[in-house]
Design a binder for these strands. Structure first.
Length: 494
RNA sequence: GCGCCCAUAGCUCAGCUGGUAGAGCAAAUGACUCUUAAUCAUUGGGUCGAAGGUUCGAAUCCUUCUGGGCGUACCA
């Protein structure tokens, strides 16, 4: 019962508004109206203004400011396309209607109709002739000037953030436009969007800890997917040649500025292509999307950071970046010497850190964060990427790239491994390396190997972390600013 | 998981070395027919995140818990 009391925290305002609502009802006004046909939207209504004052418009939205001047009222009305000022005069509406409107609150949703005019102050304004209450707001909105700054509340009650903070809404509008443009681009280039299981009996395609669940009907343990990769490759076997899947992956890991346990990923595969096919594709895709969404390839981030997406993007191999960072003899010294040098650079290296991990620590901690401008890092050690083809000229390396922008991995891509015998060896090596016991991460997806044994065309494949791409394109500093409902600890009550 | 920091009215915040809580916005009432952070007057509004402790006395000091932020760890 204490719960109910705390939920009614703004008790006074809530009680006041409840009684306003009852009052409206007793006067035959529905506090929660129905459809409001014919709204043109705020942005369009603005565009309809004519200096003669003859244009009329019908719009619906939320009242976000209320300025009463005795026998006239100015309000701000907001919809998804923007804000417009509305003006209500007692003369025009008649006394009863005017008094009803005067009782409305900030936060109420109304539909209005009237003529567009220009105020003395030069603002296009709708002179309301008729209005309808569409939804009574029973709780107060956050303060108009400072908005909602409490970070926790912005995430927990994202709707308030979206109502009040224009920047936040703009980021999400951009996010959805970016996703739309990606789909448009791929559609135009002959790719087909497919859907593969999120509930998987074996989580594969990435070495991440999965979320577990249980499927009663089959009496089996299931996992939320960590990647769709192994299913998409089955589709390559099945004869789909240009496919993509754009949807959620789930990884049972910590959260951070760059990590949310569920995140959106697009994976793209093209049969008869390879790693360089995919580099060209992602370069063209990202620059096209940036131009269509932002109209520019220059993106500014906080702290004077400027990212320039102009093509061609730098290509550099992993090894060269390490030599650049660690000195030309990095790969000539003994592995124990490498380990102690890495430890000397402040990295967390223990005696049983494998040699390739030592170099990779240097790459991830000291090199990657410096790659602000778009950079394709290529030719990684094979141990790091078990699903990619080896380089023709050096079997210790795989033919892959990682696209780095803004110091973050935005997109990995490979020449996909289509040799089932080699694939099995690589899976087995992976299990040995990870030292995993009987847990599912150590299980080989035999069904996938059987599919490969039927013959998979050589292919290029890649994935783009959509959340990070959106961060990069919008200048957002945290993944939580580009995910509508980021994961938070549930509030315990007791 | 670990470390540091934060939590005061619906929102944004102030509150000194411990003396019993304050502003702006929002809300209520009134004035005002071109305002736009409208203005002016009056009024109501708080378990100071929770629980315990020290003290004559705690928003303030101590402990624990809850939630959050930042960093770090996990993260092919």
């Amino acid at each position: 019962m204490e719960k109910e009391v705390s939920q009614l925290a703004p008790e006074d305002v809530f009680a006041q508004r409840m009684s306003k609502k009852d009052d409206l009802e007793s006067h035959g006004i529905k506090p929660f109206g129905g459809a409001f046909a014919g709204s043109v939207g705020v942005a369009k209504a603005r565009g309809m203004f004519k200096p003669e004052g003859s244009a009329k418009a019908r719009v619906a939205g939320r009242l976000t400011a209320f300025r009463v001047m005795g026998k006239s009222i100015f309000c701000d009305l907001k919809d998804s396309s923007g804000r417009i000022q509305i003006y209500l005069k007692k003369d025009v509406l008649g006394e009863p209607a005017f008094l009803v409107f005067k009782k409305l609150d900030i936060g109420d949703i109304v539909g209005v109709e009237g003529a567009l005019f220009m105020t003395k102050m030069g603002e296009i304004t709708l002179n309301v002739e008729t209005f309808e209450l569409l939804s009574k707001s029973l709780r107060p909105l956050p303060e108009k000037w400072h908005g909602l700054t409490d970070i926790e509340q912005r995430y927990r009650q994202r709707y308030l953030d979206l109502i009040v903070n224009d920047d936040s809404r703009a980021i999400f509008q951009m996010r959805f436009k970016i996703i739309r443009e990606i789909r448009k681009y791929l559609e135009a280039h002959g790719f087909v969007e497919v859907e593969t299981p999120m509930l998987q009996p074996l989580p594969g395609g990435a070495a991440a800890k999965p979320f577990e669940t249980f499927y009663e009907a089959l009496d089996s343990r299931m996992y939320l997917r960590v990647a769709p990769e192994l299913y998409l490759k089955r589709l390559l076997v099945g004869g789909f040649e240009k496919i993509y899947e754009l949807n959620r992956n789930f990884r049972n890991e910590g959260m951070s500025r760059r990590h949310n346990p569920e995140f959106t990923m697009i994976e793209i595969y093209q049969a008869y292509g390879d790693c360089s096919t995919m580099m060209e594709l992602v370069e063209d895709l990202v620059t096209t999307v940036a131009m269509n969404v932002l109209g520019t390839l220059d993106i500014s981030h906080s702290g004077d950071k400027l990212i320039n997406l102009a093509r061609p993007w730098r290509r550099v191999c992993y090894r060269d970046l390490l030599l650049e960072k660690c000195g030309g003899d990095w790969f000539d010294v003994s592995s124990s010497e490498r380990a102690s040098r890495a430890a000397g650079m402040g990295l967390d290296i223990t005696s049983d850190t494998p040699d390739f991990e030592v170099s990779n620590e240097v790459y991830e901690k000291l090199v990657e964060p410096t790659l602000l401008q778009p950079t394709f890092v290529t030719r990684f050690p094979a141990e790091l990427v078990p699903l990619a083809k080896r380089c023709e000229d050096d079997p210790a390396l795989v033919d892959v790239f990682e696209l780095e922008i803004n110091g973050q991995e935005i997109a990995p891509g490979y020449s996909e491994l289509n040799d089932p015998i080699e694939q099995r060896r690589r899976f087995e090596a992976q299990i040995r390396l990870s030292g995993s016991k009987e847990n599912s991460e150590g299980n080989i997806d035999e069904d996938f190997l059987v599919a490969l044994e039927h013959g998979m065309p050589p292919a290029g494949g890649m994935g783009i972390g959509i959340d990070r791409l959106v961060m990069m394109l919008t200048g957002a500093g945290a993944i939580r600013d580009v995910v509508l409902f980021p994961q938070l600890r549930p509030i315990r009550r007791g």
